[in-house]
Nucleic acid binder design. Sequence first.
DNA 1: CCGTATCCCAAGAGATACTG
DNA 2: CAGTATCTCTTGGGATACGG
Lengths: 120, 120
Amino acid sequence: MSESKAKTPSEQRETVDGSELFSLLGKAHTMAILREILLGDSSSVRFGELQEALDISPNTLSRRLDELVEVGFLERTQYDEIPPRVEYEATELLGALEPTFRELEQWMATHGAEQLGCPE
Amino acid sequence: MSESKAKTPSEQRETVDGSELFSLLGKAHTMAILREILLGDSSSVRFGELQEALDISPNTLSRRLDELVEVGFLERTQYDEIPPRVEYEATELLGALEPTFRELEQWMATHGAEQLGCPE
DNA sequence: CCGTATCCCAAGAGATACTG
DNA sequence: CAGTATCTCTTGGGATACGG
């Protein structure tokens, strides 16, 4: 079992200011990504999975994931295998927000919004 | 007591889709505005108040308010007086989101974010 | 497989000046 | 007082091609 994981050094700031955070939430695909990870079947997701499920161009998805890691919402784990594998999963920080998240979804369901994320 | 109110006709859609909504939340000053109205002392706010309190240029503030009215978060009431007066207040729709909103604030307080909104 | 590097185009935010 | 009209500048996202 040579797992050989490697968490990205990730210069994650301990403090995140609110404006930055909400601005990130409003960016394209962010909510869809979080939804996939937080409310999806598995607790972790691979790059390709997201790309396929949400139909995002790789550069945009990459940026979004970076940002989410940077604010401390996601944790990136890289497995040194061939072919390469990378998993993203929710941090505790984000986990603490899950109830709120579900509440939001509930609210949306009540008011005619079909689903989160998925611009266009 | 010549009140002479006038609610803006407001072509408010009944259904709002999630992406549009989160995108709006992420736009500059949106959260700050909602915070001011939802968690502020008074339940209604005037244009000038917001402009002063949040330091936003009038055109941007105007756009933001329009959008918030359009998605059904705010209600605009115009008083036909001189000088003109306009009040914005939270709709029931937004009101239903207040617990979630407070939860979010709580979450932020716990994690080092000082305040919502206020970009830069 | 999981990205990065470029280029281009569109949306958005601020400054400023002006109007009902 | 409460906005609108422009204009400009920046940011952001999609497409595509390529790299470890």
